[in-house]
Design a protein around this nucleic acid. Structure first.
Lengths: 217, 217
DNA sequence: TTATTTTTTTAGATTTGTCTAAACATTTAG
DNA sequence: CTAAATGTTTAGACAAATCTAAAAAAATAA
């Protein structure tokens, strides 16, 4: 069994290699873990000894099949608990991330399966992220970042890639919630900010916001 | 905020002083924590520095008001999660203790209050133990151990003082579950074992079993 | 009340995850 | 292609929670 810390490292390595075949670098992990590169090096050696990652000095890290399975299981738990918090306990989508960060480390396979069943086997969490099934499989829904859309193009909001309360509250205030359809009106040359139409209202979002909004065309 | 370990020490000190005004001894804590007396001494010093317990060398430990409040809050969470596991996820009463030992350390006051509400403010957990309210108050239901009952006396099973799966499964097999009414038929002089009548059936329980069954007369 | 037993504490070591400072590799730029 | 900048690792230290072995205090018994 892994410690909470080890599980968090695996989860972060998983997320950092999700859209990317390359090995994950020490500094990238350090930033996400809010720790120092030296600490990461120590942990990478340890995870490597446990055969949860492949690691060569100066070459970065990759998950082994077992490491990946472990990471996906933590992610599965995180997302199921988020659904529980929103659907059953009436939390808002911007309130659940930190609590789920704790709950994801509860170690009881039976609990996870029963929770999944209790929630009627949800396919996505409150932020639109897919929930892996008990075998670690999840159906990949194709998406693009809002920043990739061109003038006149339109699509549906189907996810976000940033889960902080501040960001999600901001989206909510703008009316940019899951399932809403939007169309690009204009893209501002000057600062890259994007004018969009949502429910017949025209709003403006900065590039920084837009890059965390995931669209299905 | 306290570590899981500190919370477990506080909880154990609370339970050990529940039926007893005396200070709790090092060895008693060591046994419950499955650790060595030397480790307990170190932790008692630490908890004392944090003013969660009163501790003098060789004199044992007592909870301070803050220490007691902390312990009760952990117990509140443990018991609420047990209700959740049994009522919502259909676990059996003998399956929930270990999972609740993990869940009790999740730190989110908001989560606890919403869980309490979701469960409709239960007064007792699946083993009959009272659930403290958010102010740490719980109504004490008077009980006696089954071993205290005399020939011909009768009462209702309203709790157990041992939560291991093995013990609870055994009770279940004997039909000795919460709410059942029973009467003492005879008490065996030889080994102290007790013959009882439950639902018109006569069964025999050892003293060791009987002392963990709590009765309301 | 002295001696023995039990309980508790101290001293010193270990493991986990972290840190800083310095050394070492790799990449990038001139 | 060397030099500077960036990224990574090593060395040595620390705090938390634990351990063993030995010393000290308290309780019990003769």
């Amino acid at each position: 069994m892994q410690s909470f810390t080890e599980e968090n490292y695996l989860k972060i390595i998983y997320h950092l290699s999700e859209n990317n075949e390359e090995a994950v670098q020490t500094n990238a992990i350090a930033e996400k873990m809010q720790t120092k590169a030296a600490s990461v090096t120590d942990m990478l050696r340890k995870l490597s000894e446990k055969e949860l990652i492949l690691y060569k000095k100066y070459q970065g890290a990759r998950l082994t099949p077992i490491g990946r399975q472990t990471a996906i299981n933590v992610i599965r738990k995180h997302r199921l608990w988020e659904v529980f918090l929103v659907e059953k306990l009436n939390f808002k989508w911007d309130e659940v991330h930190d609590i789920a960060e704790e709950l994801e480390h509860i170690n009881s396979p039976e609990l996870v399966e029963r929770l999944d069943e209790f929630l009627a086997f949800p396919k996505n969490d409150p932020h639109g992220d897919p929930i892996p099934d008990k075998n670690g499989k999840f159906d990949f829904v194709p998406f693009v970042k809002l920043t990739k859309l061109k003038k006149e193009e339109s699509g549906l909001i189907m996810g976000v890639s940033e889960h902080s309360s501040a960001f999600l509250k901001h989206l909510e205030k703008l009316g940019l919630t899951l399932g809403k359809s939007l169309a690009i009106s204009t893209i501002n040359d000057f600062d890259g900010s994007i004018e969009i139409i949502v429910e017949n209202k025209r709003i403006s979002v900065t590039r920084e916001i837009a890059k965390h909004i995931l669209i299905r065309i």
